[in-house]
């Protein structure tokens, strides 16, 4: 039987192919997989880099921002020459230079209740690396509506959180954090700072979860919130549960449509 791989692919993915948990079949799954990344920033950078290197066939990456000098301390998809350019476009160039097997689809529009379902519907796994709460709630709700597995990661100063949401099988983001925090009470990385290497760890954990979901191997962070404290160098897992009154994924769900929490953006930008 002829190999589905080219000679170059056999070399490129050889360290995957020799792993019994992956093998040729698993690598083929990765090459056929479609992953959507929300954000080409701190978390999206390492996640997208490793997913592209792993040979994920199609990577969608959404970011409406342009590269700023203050991003370069951690957003490793982008270089000094990219300052002022679209992050999504810069990401596409970086990722396709790393691995020509990967098709990268950049989305430069901001995700909202009108466009998100259409944009993410054909992807297998969604990875949330957004930098704001309105987008995080939008992405969670959209993934629940479409029953898409969602790898959630977030960072703040020296701390990060990771969980994997399998809608209806395990808790969603709203099962834990039912509604967004009051506007202005949770500072952004812009306001509070962030250790540059922190998203490297957290985004790589998210990419690991995405790869395992595609391969169907190992334990995932379903019903578990992994909390990482880089100063204390402490990893802690807390069990989280489906909330029987969750407003979006329980039988008592009240949210039937996507919500644009615009007011938070206005507060943030003021």
């Amino acid at each position: 039987m002829s190999s589905p791989f080219t000679e170059e692919q056999i070399k490129r993915y050889s360290r995957h192919i020799i792993l019994p948990e992956i093998g040729g079949k698993g690598q083929q799954k990765l090459l056929n997989a479609k992953v959507f990344l929300v954000g080409a920033g701190g978390l999206g950078s390492p996640a997208a880099f490793y997913l592209a290197a792993a040979g994920i066939g199609k990577i969608g990456i959404a970011d409406s921002d342009c590269v700023d000098h203050s991003n370069l301390q951690r957003q490793i998809l982008h270089s000094t020459k990219d300052v002022g350019r679209s992050k999504a476009i810069s990401a596409k160039e970086t990722l396709e230079a790393l691995n020509p097997d990967v098709e990268v689809i950049p989305y430069t529009e901001r995700l909202n209740s009108e466009n998100i379902l259409q944009i993410i519907k054909d992807y297998d796994v969604i990875l949330d690396g957004a930098d704001n709460f309105p987008t995080r709630y939008l992405v969670n709700d959209a993934c629940v509506f479409l029953k898409k597995p969602l790898s959630h990661g977030s960072i703040f100063r020296f701390e990060g959180q990771v969980t994997t949401i399998i809608p209806f099988e395990g808790p969603c983001y709203r099962c834990l954090y039912e509604t967004p925090p009051p506007p202005g009470l949770v500072p952004s990385c812009q306001e509070a700072g962030v250790l540059g290497v922190l998203p490297g760890v957290v985004g790589s954990l998210q990419a690991t979860e995405a790869v395992k979901l595609i391969l169907g191997k190992g334990e995932i962070l379903k019903g578990k919130l992994l909390m990482y404290d880089s100063l204390a160098m402490d990893f802690k897992k807390v069990k989280i549960h489906k909330n029987p009154t969750c407003p979006v994924c329980s039988e008592k769900a009240t949210i039937r449509e996507l919500i644009d929490y615009e007011e938070f953006c206005q507060v943030r930008n003021s």
């Binding site: 978390l43 949330d128 990661g153 834990l176």
Partner: peptide
């Protein structure tokens, strides 16, 4: 998970196990 509005009324008992999880939103 304890709804925010119940924090002021829920009384703790011996051996209760509490996890306090902080909102983290950056990316």
């Amino acid at each position: 998970v304890i709804p925010g509005k119940e924090l002021s009324t829920r009384i703790l008992r011996e051996s209760d196990v509490l996890e306090v999880v902080t909102f983290v939103g950056g990316g």
